[in-house]
Design a binder for these strands. Structure first.
Lengths: 238, 238
DNA sequence: CAGTGGTCTAGACCACCCA
DNA sequence: GGGTGGTCTAGACCACTGG
């Protein structure tokens, strides 16, 4: 329920967000111009500006002077994944090459089926990939997708690019809206240790990602397990 | 060098930030009011508002309607430390009790002396503390301070509170301005494993914190080592 | 050139805080 | 009541984009 005396600029924000959430506006779209919005909603352009300012700060929109204001798309460059590197905190210039190791339909662990709101018996699309820095294995990735999102992908006749999400959007028309990541550490089980060429029970970093499409529908459950000695996450406190 | 045609609001931001960086304004201080700043700098109040808006977004300032605008102080609640918990991502309501185990003057490992720009032979103030959740050890903390910052603290006659930084500011008059944290994972050495009551080489999360005072002077080098199974960091991507 | 966002102003009215 | 920040307006001028 929206408040009665919500500030006008908040209403403008909601108006724009509703258009995004309902799919009338998809990532990359040009939104109505400031004067247009001001007219439509019967507020001043300054108020529209303030609303858009806020959404730009939240990275929901971005502006191009002389062109207009656009709906942002999700930026996986903000993934915690980028803190895997040579042990440097920078994460700059490091090339991690990925290879697909497995691609099949499988019954998933129940907590994963549940997270994707699938019956535990239904098969899901499973993709395993491994990441290397100059031939050295550094991480292993387990991805679980709802199969109806990516029909036919398990046939293996489709090239799977490093960044799958662009393909999901372009080839399959499924918008990728947001994602949540959780970071923990653990010790490597035998399978993982073997894949990463480390001793069993060596420390590893576990990065779980839940990816969402429209209407908060989760479309992917991903776990990335990486060598702990190749991970460092830096942040500033004020 | 500042640009020639820098927008006015950027100049106002710089004006305020200079007062903070130079120490004329310290955390908690009330800054000049919007009309005052507008007069002093010969710009309109709207421009001052925009400048302050930006600094508030960056958490450098905060406002209180009817009172004024204040300089923010560092908020250690934003530390990655808060993601140590019962395995829940929330970090809410979890009480970690800390005890001081050691307090002495010691020669530090060279990389720490170096970080604090101290000659490697000089003794530093070392504090070791341990954190518990209901009697269960969950983390161990190694803190290294420049001894002249906290004279006499090693005598042990001063009570060390959970959050040391308030004491540093109030009792010793040293402003605590910012901090950097780096997160990695490792396996526990024997000493740590014993302290945390876990098996040797169990995975642990290592959180390094560098704390800075005025003029980017580093005043503390801290390493917090915690049980990996009690840590999880969650973030959202858009 | 017309249309977009970017900056800046001047002033109105409101809500909050404190003496 | 006087001062603070919070919202909102109307309008000016500029810088960038594309046809």
């Amino acid at each position: 329920m929206s408040q009665q005396h919500l500030p006008l600029y908040k209403r403008v924000e909601q108006h724009i967000l509703e258009k995004i959430d309902s799919g009338q506006l998809v990532p990359g779209d040009l939104i109505a111009s400031e004067p247009q919005l001001a007219n439509q909603l019967d507020v001043s352009q300054g108020t529209v500006k303030k609303a858009i300012d806020n959404l730009v700060n939240e990275k929901r929109l971005f502006r191009h002077q002389g062109k207009g204001t656009y709906v942002s798309s999700i930026d996986f460059n903000n993934s915690l994944f980028r803190f895997f590197s040579y042990g440097d905190a920078s994460g700059q210039g490091v090339r991690i090459h990925k290879e697909t190791v497995e691609l099949s339909l499988k019954v998933a662990p129940t907590h994963i089926s549940k997270a994707l709101s699938y019956p535990p018996e239904r098969e899901l699309l499973y993709i395993q990939r491994r990441g290397y820095i100059e031939e050295q294995p550094i991480l292993i990735e387990h991805c679980w997708w709802c199969p109806e999102i990516l029909p036919g992908l398990e046939k293996g006749d489709v090239h799977i690019p490093d960044l799958m999400y662009a393909m999901v959007v372009e080839k399959y028309g499924v918008p990728v809206i947001s994602a949540e990541e959780t970071l923990t550490a653990d010790s490597a089980d035998d399978y993982t240790a073997d894949a990463l060429e480390i001793d069993a029970s060596s420390p590893v970093v576990v990065l779980t990602r839940n990816t969402f499409s429209r209407n908060d529908k989760m479309i992917e459950y991903r776990t990335t397990i990486g060598r702990a000695d190749k991970f460092s996450y830096k942040t500033k406190i004020r």
